[in-house]
């Protein structure tokens, strides 16, 4: 059991979010972290998965999970992501930060649950869900929930949905940047806060390549 867990974790750290999710049980993944174990999961857009459920149990004392996402939706795609983090052990921590850009008529449904159980004293959890809407008919639904049963803890979440600030576009254009390039710069900039968190810089370059090369090109052809 321990060996299998190590293999899974290895895969998680080495591979990028997209491949990672696909290799685990289709649609639903569960991970349990033991004492002092730490894990970073990076979610990338994928044509394959449209309905993902991820549950992380922070069982061991001091275990930590970081779930970062740079997601895109376009055309008429609909993606459903459900992330649950359950703090069972003491001094466990979770940092969930998802950023999604929606083009065309895509839909994103996000449901996040952070539960801190009675014995998870000294734990902390943070959930951030930010959606940038570029498509005229794009839709976002977000339900970030908290269930807190211990008081020596800190938990918070924040979510925003909005469009590109016209003032920002105008500022970039006033410096000679074309609208298409300005939009692309802002979209790339939008993802920076999650990319910055990745300690594996080699992965960052790889992710950027995948994000920009494949996905963004598809939705921002003029840039």
């Amino acid at each position: 059991m321990g060996e299998k867990k190590d293999l899974v974790r290895e895969k998680l750290e080495l591979t990028l979010g997209r491949t990672l999710i696909d290799r685990l049980e289709e649609g639903e993944s569960e991970l349990r972290l033991g004492a002092d174990e730490a894990l970073t999961i990076f979610l990338l857009p994928s044509q394959k998965y449209k309905n993902k459920k991820l549950t992380v149990w922070l069982e061991g004392r001091g275990s930590r999970v970081e779930i970062l996402g740079a997601l895109l939706g376009g055309g008429e795609e609909e993606s459903k992501i459900s992330i649950r983090v359950i703090h069972k052990g003491r001094e466990t921590s979770a940092y969930i930060h998802l950023r999604t850009v929606l083009f065309g008529q895509s839909r994103s449904l996000f449901s996040g649950l952070i539960r801190i159980e009675k014995d998870a004293i000294g734990s902390g959890s943070l959930l951030e869900d930010r959606v940038l809407v570029l498509g005229e008919a794009a839709r976002a639904e977000s339900v970030p929930s908290l269930e807190i049963e211990a008081n020596e803890v800190k938990a918070s979440h924040a979510a925003t949905v909005g469009r590109i600030d016209e003032e920002q576009l105008f500022y970039l254009e006033s410096r000679g940047v074309s609208r298409a390039t300005a939009v692309r710069m802002i979209v790339e900039g939008f993802f920076e806060p999650v990319l910055r968190r990745l300690s594996r810089k080699d992965l960052v370059a790889q992710i950027r390549g995948e994000l920009w090369a494949d996905a963004l090109k598809q939705y921002l052809p003029d840039s």
Binding site: A138, E141, S142, P144, S145, V153, K154, S156, H157
Partner: peptide, 22 residues
Amino acid sequence: DTYPTMRIDESQVQVEHEATVS
């Protein structure tokens, strides 16, 4: 507990939500 639901079916909007428990 906090159970907020946001259903945004229009693109030209600005929505913010924050919650803390401590």
